[in-house]
């Protein structure tokens, strides 16, 4: 097992290196030097050239790339000239809030999707199944912000149950946790789209498993339906979900971006949006690299988790 983890980490490293190369190339193409940001748009070419020389932006690309890599290793993601802070500091500030939102949404979507999917599979082709399948389809076809808008319209503006945007007084994850109504709508928005795809997979996986012979043997032992579902079906049907969660990380990050923007929640997503407007490429591309690292790590953790959960998968 350890050998596998080490080898996977090595592969992950290579992947991240590949991503870094692509990102660096993009960065270099889009914004080869922040000189204009610092000196102003109307700066003189001579001033720009000397600023570049001073800060190392005139070196050959390869050298700049390695220095960039070196920075990454030290967790130095660059500097945001627009916001006058190091990117790492910006990330640290916002990460906690974003993590809370994402994890809360993930947990909520799993709590709903797993039993829902199983129930749909067990009661296949009944009215309940059709209703939820239709609902899932609609949610799946909806851009997340549209759902958010609908929720804002009805639950916030019309009925006043929740606030339409997150109040400015919520600055830390703990505060968010303490004031559930503040984050209720963003969490539900982010969770809803995931519920749609998770429960679809769960239903499909549960159906596949229900058709398996071991379910029939479990029944032949005299187990009640509930016992069969709990002690036999649940674990086997959930196995593909582990992989799915790993694969959903990019979607969660994207959803995070849109939700934070919509509800004005100061997290990494909103930071990204601001950077888009500012053309703050250091932040933008650092975000992309972070996203890539999270994705790769997420898949690695999912693979290891599967090997623990499924005895048929032996990693050596």
């Amino acid at each position: 097992m350890m050998g596998y983890i080490i080898r996977r980490l090595a592969t992950a490293l290579i992947v991240v290196l590949g991503v870094a190369a692509i990102i660096f190339a993009l960065l270099h193409w889009l914004a080869p030097s922040p000189a204009y940001d610092v000196l102003g748009a109307k700066a003189q070419p001579a001033a720009v050239a000397s600023w570049n020389k001073l800060h190392g932006y005139d070196r050959p690309e390869i050298v700049q790339f390695f220095s960039y890599l070196g920075d990454l290793v030290h967790l130095n993601f660059g500097y945001s000239y627009k916001l006058s802070q190091s990117v790492s500091a910006l990330f640290k500030e916002n990460a906690g809030r974003s993590a809370y939102l994402t994890l809360a949404a993930l947990l909520l979507s799993l709590i709903i999707a797993v039993p829902l999917g199983i129930m749909q599979a067990v009661r296949r082709n009944t009215f309940g199944d059709y209703t939820f399948t239709t609902l899932n389809f609609v949610l799946y076809s909806m851009p997340s912000f549209f759902l958010g808008l609908i929720l804002i319209q009805f639950l916030a503006l019309d009925w006043g149950v929740f606030p339409p945007t997150v109040s400015d007084s919520i600055t830390t994850a703990w505060q968010a946790f303490d004031h559930p109504t503040q984050l209720a709508l963003p969490i539900v928005t982010l969770a809803a789209i995931n519920v749609a795809s998770f429960s679809r997979y769960m239903r499909s996986s549960a159906l596949d498993n229900l058709a398996q012979d071991y379910i029939r043997l479990a029944r032949a032992k005299g187990l009640s339906q509930r016992a069969v579902l709990f002690h036999h079906l649940l674990r086997n049907a959930c196995l593909p979900m582990i992989t799915l969660i790993g694969l959903s990380i990019p979607t969660l990050l994207a959803g995070n971006l849109l939700t934070e923007y919509l509800f004005n929640y100061p997290g990494l997503g909103l930071l990204f949006y601001t950077a888009l407007g500012n053309l703050d490429y250091n932040v933008l591309l650092a975000y992309v690299i972070l996203g890539a690292i999270l994705t790769v790590l997420g898949n690695l953790i999912a693979d290891v988790a599967i090997s623990i959960a499924d005895p048929r998968v032996r990693l050596d």
Binding site: R219, A220, G222, H232, R235
Partner: peptide, 27 residues
């Protein structure tokens, strides 16, 4: 069904053809 369940695996038992798919792979 509740009574039938008491008999299944207890008074009447069944074995099937494919032993690989008939056993729960994760138990």
């Amino acid at each position: 069904d509740a009574d039938l369940r008491r008999l299944r695996g207890n008074e009447v038992a069944m074995i099937f053809q494919d032993s690989l798919s008939s056993l729960n792979p994760t138990k």
